[in-house]
């Protein structure tokens, strides 16, 4: 069972890499057109120290942005979930804000807080990722069946008790679904800022320097490193989901 769980995705990765290698080899593409997996290893070996430093910077900013997104998203979601008026007021604003491509916001933020690179990066990661969390929490809370509330209310339970005993646990599966989306979005946000802002740091900056120096294998190596980080964070969320909302998964029987 565990062999299957680890072996199958691992085999898929190997097959993908082989296909990629074959595609480049069969077309005879030079590495400035399309780097192949065999070009990546030298790039990793050469820049390993940079990958560790930059990778860590990207990772902590993404996680910091995510934590702020979770806090703000839950707060907004609770406000919208419990109050119809606030839902009517905030939804169009949120949808509008979410519709603005964050790539266009990056230069504005970079100018607004010039030099505050860490702050700006975390800010963009947060801005791009809080929306699904806020929506999922608000929907989870507002669609709570009235009978659930009545069961506790008829016993004299307070609103706070109802929230902790029923509303919050019942919303957790939706929350984790949204968090999976938010994780990948936050990575996009972090890298947008890292690539665009001058003298940036993080994997995005490493990508940018690869571009400046026409080091194509390095650029591809950064992309793969980002993918790896994304996978790691995603599965951390899955792990937490299994602990806190594992009950929502139906056991096949």
């Amino acid at each position: 069972m565990t062999l299957r769980k680890i072996g199958v995705p691992l085999a898929a990765i190997v097959i993908l890499l082989l296909a990629w290698e074959f595609l480049v080899w069969a077309n005879g593409w030079p590495d400035y057109k399309m780097a192949s997996p065999s070009d990546l290893f030298p790039a990793y070996v050469q820049y390993w120290d940079l990958f560790i430093v930059m990778g860590w910077q990207t990772l902590w900013r993404t996680i910091a942005g995510l934590f702020i997104a979770i806090a703000v998203g839950i707060g907004l979601g609770m406000i919208m979930g419990f109050s119809q008026t606030m839902r009517d007021a905030l939804y169009p604003l949120l949808v509008g804000f979410n519709a603005i491509p964050k790539a266009t916001v990056v230069p504005i933020v970079a100018l607004l807080f010039v030099g505050a690179h860490d702050f700006n990066t975390v800010l963009i990661a947060f801005m791009i990722s809080f929306f699904p969390i806020a929506v999922s929490i608000s929907i989870g809370l507002s669609t709570l069946e009235p009978e659930y509330r009545d069961i506790l209310r008829s016993l004299g339970a307070s609103k706070t008790t109802i929230f902790w005993k029923i509303a919050l646990p019942k919303t957790l599966p939706e929350f984790f679904g949204a968090l999976k989306v938010a994780v990948t979005l936050a990575f996009i946000g972090t890298n947008l800022m890292e690539i665009v802002s001058p003298h940036g740091r993080g994997l995005g900056a490493l990508f940018d320097s690869g571009k400046t120096n026409s080091d194509y294998p390095l650029m591809f190596a950064v992309l793969i490193a980002l993918a790896a980080l994304g996978i790691v964070l995603y599965y951390i969320v899955v792990f937490l989901e299994n602990i806190f909302a594992g009950w929502a998964e139906r056991n096949p029987s």
């Binding site: 009978e147 069961i151 029923i166 957790l172 009950w247 929502a248």
Partner: peptide, 15 residues
């Protein structure tokens, strides 16, 4: 608190 209720939907907490 001296009232007990049951509905058509059993509304048990799944977790």
């Amino acid at each position: 608190a001296t009232v007990g209720m049951a509905f058509q939907n059993p509304v048990l907490l799944e977790w």
